[in-house]
């Protein structure tokens, strides 16, 4: 389908002239309808995702009376005050900071673990490689261990501490070590030996070679785990009873449980939570797709 591009790529210049002309002619015929269909499809996809979100924005700007009178109607007199009220009542500022802390620390630690374990196992530098590979697979689908994790933290004196919560979330590495191990296979092994001959130690090699080279895979692993941490509700409920330590997911959930009657306010609260995320995402997204490239090449 990439054939629909009309500018010839460098590789094509060396193609036999006859073949190229034929190819170009065929393309020119295909370009128009294909492009239109493609754009139509993109519009449909974007619509499926944007419409529900715009509907939420529309709701956020309604007073409760307006909403119940006509939930689908376009907003006529925007209630910007909903946002201020939701912000004050929801205490979202503090929650967002908590969430950022948990997400960066837990996903960061989890990703580090995935690298520190995935690399040597993939290279076969350790005894019992089968055992470690099996461990990586098992990490994918461990049973829900909420009750016992609570008991564990309680006994370790880490209950109701941010550190305890971060450690539990970091240990939920999921697919991470497996992905890193897979990616490392695509890195030339000779590099390890060459670096070692040059006198590089193991740690220095990890930092100066493995991490930069495995960046795409590391980015993927980090993002996948960060999503899980950011969205967690139930572990935070149990492990962090102190409301001052609540992450934003829990704050919003509690807000929703308390203000069930007020859809405009709820929608506004939701938008408040979503806005910084969307902004952060728009800023980071080119790193994201770019970062993921190749992480599954291996």
């Amino acid at each position: 389908m990439t054939a629909t591009t009309s500018t010839p790529r460098p590789a094509e210049r060396d193609a036999p002239v006859a073949a190229r002309t034929a190819l170009d002619a065929r393309r020119r015929r295909l370009i128009r309808p294909g492009r239109i269909v493609n754009y139509a499809l993109v519009v449909i996809v974007v619509f499926c995702y944007l419409f529900p979100l715009l509907f939420l924005l529309n709701t956020a700007l309604k007073s409760n009376a307006d909403f119940f009178a006509n939930p689908v109607g376009l907003v006529t007199s925007p209630q910007w005050a909903n946002f201020g009220q939701a912000w004050v009542q929801g205490n979202f500022g503090a929650y967002i900071l908590n969430s950022v802390l948990y997400t960066i620390c837990a996903a960061g630690l989890g990703t580090a673990i995935a690298v520190l374990m995935g690399f040597p196992v993939s290279r076969g530098y350790l005894r019992w490689p089968r055992l470690w590979n099996a461990l990586f697979v098992v990490m994918l689908f461990l049973p829900n261990a909420l009750i016992t994790q609570f008991q564990l933290l309680l006994r370790m004196g880490l209950y109701n501490t941010q550190l305890g919560y971060i450690l539990i979330m970091a240990a939920g590495v999921g697919v991470g070590p497996l992905l890193i191990a897979g990616y490392v296979k695509s890195l030339p092994r000779e590099l390890d030996e060459a670096a070692a001959v040059d006198g590089s130690g193991y740690w220095r090699y990890l930092i100066t070679f493995v991490i930069p080279m495995a960046k795409p895979a590391i980015a993927t692993v980090f993002i996948l785990q960060a999503i899980g941490v950011w969205n967690d509700i139930i572990l935070a409920t149990i492990l962090l009873p102190d409301p001052a330590k609540s992450p934003i997911s829990l704050g919003l959930y509690a807000f929703q449980g308390t203000y069930t009657n007020d859809w405009g306010l709820l929608a506004a609260a939701t938008m408040i939570v979503a806005a910084p995320l969307v902004a952060a995402y728009l800023f980071l997204q080119r790193y994201l797709v770019g970062g993921v490239v190749g992480s599954v090449k291996g």
């Binding site: 139930i234 409920t237 009873p241 409301p243 959930y253 509690a254 929703q256 449980g257 308390t258």
Partner: peptide
């Protein structure tokens, strides 16, 4: 004071 949603 903590007010937790009924479900939790």
């Amino acid at each position: 004071f903590s007010a937790v949603p009924n479900d939790n």
